[in-house]
């Protein structure tokens, strides 16, 4: 048991020496209770300290350790080696993102997209703190709660072919978050947020492949959020057409 091993094929890219990424194989001890991230940490500790990858919480909460495991976008902290053993495991950085180094991707475009949907509560009338919180009933909370569970792991961006083909597409996680705020009864930023959500790069870019929802580790179902966003954007367009000066 103790001397069983498994092969990890890891995509390496060292910008100072490599012109393009290449695979490197590592033989790693096999343990039934090890996840892919444990194996990567073992490599870094005992085999090759130069291997770079992101990770933090090790319990599927922080969203840092997303990688392509055998071609699928997964959190490496909850992807067990036993799922693949005795076959080798291929580990690559998330696709649809530029590679910064080894398994580390450049997430700048994602952060910019996140900012576009203004993921915070916008108020026209800001209450003083002593007046207490903006109240919300459980029913109002349930309207958006599922879409607020996103941990920004970006697996959905790696799973979405539209992101790969049309890099300006705001993408699943950011759009789901934008729609989460559109559905929030406390929010008053409908117009400015809808402008982004209903834009050419927004919900209309989505062709509903649906793979974003398949890979989501938090069951946010961004595909559902985006389709609901399309309905909201359509109704909004008609309302503006029929009542140009109307209040919502």
């Amino acid at each position: 048991m103790a001397d069983e091993t498994i092969i990890l094929r890891v995509l390496r890219y060292r910008p100072e020496q490599d012109s393009e990424p290449t695979f490197q194989e590592y033989e790693v001890p096999y343990r039934k209770d090890w996840v892919v991230l444990d194996a990567l940490n073992w490599i870094k500790e005992y085999k090759d300290g130069t291997l770079s990858f992101r990770w933090s919480c090790r319990m599927g909460v922080c969203g840092s350790c997303g990688m392509m495991v055998n071609g699928r976008a997964r959190l490496t902290c909850n992807t067990f080696l036993r799922e693949f053993y005795p076959n080798p495991i291929t580990v690559e950085p998330l696709v649809n993102f530029d590679i910064e180094r080894d398994l580390v991707i450049c997430m700048d475009p994602f952060i910019e997209k996140l900012k576009r949907v203004k993921p915070w509560i916008i108020r026209e009338d800001v209450k003083p703190v002593e007046d207490g919180p903006y109240e919300q009933s459980p029913a109002e909370l349930y309207r958006y709660k599922q879409f607020s569970m996103c941990i920004n792991c970006m697996l959905c961006y790696a799973a979405c072919p539209v992101v790969g083909l049309h890099p300006e597409f705001i993408g699943p996680a950011a759009l789901a978050l934008g729609i989460r705020y559109l559905l929030d009864s406390r929010d008053q930023g409908w117009d400015e947020r809808m402008e982004e959500v209903a834009s050419h790069d927004g919900v209309w870019g989505c062709t509903f492949v649906g793979e974003c929802s398949e890979v989501c580790p938090k069951h946010v179902d961004p595909a559902a959020a985006i389709q609901q966003g399309k309905v909201m954007a359509t109704l909004d367009w008609f309302k503006r057409l029929l009542m140009p000066r109307g209040q919502r």
């Binding site: 910008p15 393009e20 696709v95 649809n96 590679i99 083909l165």
Partner: peptide
């Protein structure tokens, strides 16, 4: 040193 590498998306995706 930063030199981000962009992987092409294959037509057979």
């Amino acid at each position: 040193m930063r030199r981000p590498y962009r992987r092409p998306m294959p037509k057979t995706w």
